[in-house]
Design a protein around this nucleic acid. Sequence first.
DNA 1: ATGAAAGCGCTAACAC
DNA 2: GTGTTAGCGCTTTCAT
Lengths: 327, 327
Amino acid sequence: MITIKEIARLANVSSATVSKVINGKDRYISEETRKRVLEIVEREGYIPNGIAKSLKMKRTKTIGIILPDVMNLFFSEVAKGAEDAAERKGYTVILCNSDNSKAKEGKYINILQEKMVDGIILTASEAETSKYLERCNIPMVLVDRDLELEKPVGRIVVDNVEGTYKATNYLISKGCKSIGFVSSQEVNKLAKERLLGYKKALRENGMEIDPNKIFLKSFTVETGYEGVYHLFNQGHVDGICCGNDLIAIGVIQGLKEKGISVPEEVKIIGFDNICIGKYLDPPLTTVRQPIYKLGEEAVNVLISIIEKKDIEMVKVLDTEIVVRASA
Amino acid sequence: MITIKEIARLANVSSATVSKVINGKDRYISEETRKRVLEIVEREGYIPNGIAKSLKMKRTKTIGIILPDVMNLFFSEVAKGAEDAAERKGYTVILCNSDNSKAKEGKYINILQEKMVDGIILTASEAETSKYLERCNIPMVLVDRDLELEKPVGRIVVDNVEGTYKATNYLISKGCKSIGFVSSQEVNKLAKERLLGYKKALRENGMEIDPNKIFLKSFTVETGYEGVYHLFNQGHVDGICCGNDLIAIGVIQGLKEKGISVPEEVKIIGFDNICIGKYLDPPLTTVRQPIYKLGEEAVNVLISIIEKKDIEMVKVLDTEIVVRASA
DNA sequence: ATGAAAGCGCTAACAC
DNA sequence: GTGTTAGCGCTTTCAT
């Protein structure tokens, strides 16, 4: 590998001069040397060693993003938003899948610190704070799943209570009299909040909150599928508010198997607006989150923190109902 | 940030000793010192500076993965397979989205070289080789989209000719007499091959190859949708072989709009077997690629190259028809 | 069993 | 305008 020293030798200058030219700090460099150096750099295909540079500069222009699973449509969109924003600002992204495991999350926090990333974007696996997190003093922003933390961190979230509240109200406005709720267990704030919004809407409309109509497991298609069987064993509903779109997919599938028509017999509303919702049958009515933007803003806020520009640390983005055919 | 030197001072040893202990090169270290050092490391929460280590060792334990778009279900699965495999082997992954732009691809190749990644996994944007690629002498493996390259690289692909050949034959076996093909333009080897397989099947079955029944644009839902209108303007088909599942989604949507039933009037087969295919209406019959494994194997081969174990550089993985309801 | 010291490739303060 | 030099935090050879 050719180094700055070698370029310097070939150009009959010092490596300091080469460094200045390369980095555009060429105020006091003669036009002639500048040109000569640049030519040689080009000719030799010189590529600066970013590792050496990072060691000296104490910054890597790299951020880490820890999320449960890129294969999940929601998180892949967050990741894309983040990567695009990072690229625009000259940062590079290390991708870490936690598989919702706290251990893996901790492991990655550690690795990212070793790699000296300038900042970390985290979708936390659980609600409880781990020591890893508090200890880590790299700039951090939390996306999607919020978390109580002593130290200051950025937060990019939506109002989840409001989201399911609006969703449930929408179902009620469509004439539903008996509304079920299928979602994840309350292992994190987000899941808690979504349940809360559902209950709030029922309460305000004088409808009974029936534990038999609530099925909580995880944010997966399978949960939706199981949820249908659970709900219809316990009785009957004419509307289901789903904790996310994946669950809604499973619910619709389960309903089809049971020969129950959507939306005629049971209306379904999801949450997230993942990109395939509109291709489902029936196309999914859902609560839209600006998913891509979540990732984008996470990076923007993170980089502001890194570069010490002050900026709002907490952003609550808006949700809105997207009406399609399932409700 | 606390350094190895500081730990050394606290433990009354040299940094050389600390280094040896940390890295398990402690054959000649007394049990007592070893313990003492480890305790202090633990107590102080010392995290080694991986950048300094990388500079010295000339390896970063990091690989770069360049793919068109993680939001695309196919590539997010490749990415997950790759990340999981990398994690198992102690490597970390830098994610780069090229958006199918050759310029961005080149830019990333450059950045990854600066970051001194140990290897690169690439899903090339186009068929032509760019100078960037030939110049780059970091170990590389190509996934999904193959490419002619002078230098030796790993390749993880499926037999695309065979894939669409099998798909088209399947349609024929189901009684289709007039089969259309909707896919991407032949900008890369993969697209060329899939078209070839389709033509081969028709030819072998004595069926006419009608340019009006072929619509080539890109590997997107929109192309599928447009393709339907194109095909049915030009005449009529009773089966459509799609270049990938995304296209199939668009085709099914277009057909629905036109009130044409699938699979009764037109049978549809996709390619890839992305994870949502089974939730479509009707569930999608398709040519399965082992997508996750593509990513996994890419990393395995790459790391073998990096670590100079010899191994098969080229892997052709199998495809198989997954029969669901659309054909 | 442990330490001193060189050096990885770069930047920046300071000297000239 | 340009060069000298120290030092970023680590590993490793070689000496003791």
